[in-house]
Design a protein around this nucleic acid. Structure first.
Lengths: 351, 351
DNA sequence: ACACGCAGTGTTAGCGTTAACATAAAGCAA
DNA sequence: TTGCTTTATGTTAACGCTAACACTGCGTGT
């Protein structure tokens, strides 16, 4: 307490009126001072600020938002917080928004469309200034709500589809295709696939589709596959790798494509332990480009999902559109590069 | 669209009045139907719900909150989203809150007290129903704001100090002490410490204090230390381990205590690569209990920070207090067990 | 002197909802 | 029948703030 006054244990919450009375000016003037809007003399400004500080006044944005019909909230709707992916997107969003008036409100859907719809409804009832939502696939009602909300909507992660308004992401189909091409170019033939049991993870599905599409074009198909759900991804990767390799001992696999880097890393650690020659005898690749891969003894081939970048760009689009509500939607497709790492044989491509 | 009507591209956002006109009842009745409050006949209820659905009406919580002075928001203020720790706390919070009316709003402080103060001010201006905030150390102004807000405040992660209202966490001092004791019991003598350059990470500081305290009691002190900031923790762990071991080749260290599991895992991978005998020649321990450690070839000794549990408990306290505003603050100290893993020699304690 | 602009301040009327009370219609015991 | 309760609905007045406009002096050009 910088002053000598006892702070009365605020029974009734403070309002502008309290500050206005304490400083002897109208509520409107107090409001102007606190928002830095309009002309206020230096003397009044100081008087008001001093009174507000002394009382410990905190403005009521609920009332402010209702009166001005401006709400500085951005709804962020994502499937999960438990893997590395979305927290990093959040970090990107936050980096940009913390330099603006805007504030993120997060909703988690657990990959359930009906949950997404419910969360979206909750969020929209706060009349946010924008929506950032993962994926392009939503229930009909959810899509309708977003289209009707009259605010910028950015669908993130994926650009293989039709956005409601704006979209920022990568093409997961392309990512799958590119990886398949790299594997084929390196000369691998007997390819196994390891992924999650998540029928509703559309992005994993699209990568898989792109992957098999290119294999098919080259007269190949996936020899065997293995799926997991729950548990430590690193452990699961290790276990699944053991399982799939053992199951194919007669005609051994020469490549494993993992749907994410965590299980890929698990597979890699397993191979190192067993003394399997990577990438000679067996090639490996994952997806995501999670940072800690840099710390592994051998770098796993992967493709960055550009999570930070996606978060930043999405937030920038929202910020821009908030200042220019007439602006049109835009789709930003980021194109990550394949990181070959050390788990893919060197290409011996003709020419 | 389930009906045949064209959806008019909602120029003016819909209000209760629109629904009331469409269904031929008063706004109040519509409000009652939409909130399931008070007696409404089955016939009217259906009429209203139908009209609301048809128009695509979404209630305005801003107005509702102002009128009822009830806001179902919970402010969650955490330092970062980029390490495993806080996303997992968030997951715990979310698990509990998604079964209530309450909704989390997240603010990130980047470990900066002044940023925390600013974020808190922003959050409080939404008049949330509760605050969950990391740590017990805040600026004077921030503490004053929380004390004066008249809402439940739960300080999480740490219980070594005086909470404003409620607290949920572990004793980091105790965690440091317990680990030191285990190391001493196992007979290690020349101990190195590897951590982050974060003067404001009070929890790491307290662990360190507890750790050195027990060493001192046993006539030991830390022989050498190494700090990092930024970058991939796994890589940094590997590099720091190399550095500190090389620097002490003349009189080699026999134990490394890492301030988190990520750098610990990096150190472990380095040792395995170099063929260092762990835990015989060199013992290792980390802190956090992050899930993926289970996937490592050798399990690192660590102590769980109980992040999920902390998130859940904090959310439960808030939920309870929202329903019972008279309730008193409480402090919940969780006591994690030391997981010895395979990087600490078997204890040869004289009973 | 006059009108005029303008900084600085105040007044009024909502924003969209809900609490609290008021009313109307219907049921029911006496 | 009367009076009283119960159920279903409507009316009014906030909630705390801000947009929009109104007003008051004072300085300025002519």
């Amino acid at each position: 307490m910088p002053n000598g006054h006892d702070t009365i244990p605020a029974k009734r919450p403070l309002t502008l009126r309290d500050v206005s009375e304490a400083s002897g000016v109208s509520e409107m003037t107090v409001s102007r001072v606190l928002r830095n809007r309009g002309d206020v003399s230096e003397a009044t400004r100081n008087k008001v600020l001093e009174a507000a500080r002394e009382l410990g006044y905190v403005p009521n944005k609920i009332a402010g938002a209702l009166a001005s019909s401006r709400v500085n909230l951005v709804a962020v709707i994502i499937p999960s917080m438990s893997n590395m992916v979305f927290p990093e997107v959040m970090t990107g969003i936050n980096e940009v928004l913390e330099n603006t008036e805007l504030q993120p409100v997060v909703g988690i859907t657990n990959y359930k469309p009906e949950r997404e719809e419910a969360v979206l409804y909750q969020m929209l009832s706060w009349r946010p200034s924008g929506v950032i939502i993962a994926g392009l696939e939503h229930t009909e009602a959810a899509s309708a709500m977003m289209a009707a909300a009259g605010i910028p909507v950015v669908e993130i992660m994926d650009t293989d589809g039709d956005p409601i308004d704006s979209a920022v992401g990568i093409s997961h189909r392309r990512a799958g295709r590119a990886m398949a091409q790299a594997i084929i170019d390196a000369g691998y033939k007997r390819i196994g696939f390891l992924g999650t049991k998540m029928p509703l993870d559309h992005r994993a599905r699209k990568r898989f589709e792109g992957f098999t599409e290119v294999l098919a074009k080259n007269g190949l198909e996936i020899v065997d596959r293995e799926f997991y759900s729950g548990g430590s991804a690193l452990t699961k990767g290790r276990e699944m790798t053991e399982t799939i390799l053992k199951r194919n001992e007669d005609e051994p696999l020469d490549f494993l494509y993992f749907s994410n880097d965590m299980i890929g890393a698990g597979g890699l650690l397993y191979c190192m332990e067993k003394g399997i020659d990577v990438p000679g005898q067996l090639g490996l690749a994952g997806f995501n480009g999670i940072e800690f891969l840099d710390g592994l003894p051998i770098k796993l081939a992967t493709m960055d999902a550009m999570r930070l970048e996606i978060g930043r760009t999405a937030a920038e689009i929202i910020a821009k559109r908030v200042n220019d509500p007439q602006g049109a939607g835009e789709t930003v497709t980021l194109t990550p590069e394949l990181a070959l790492g050390q788990t893919l044989k060197k290409v011996k491509k003709p020419l």
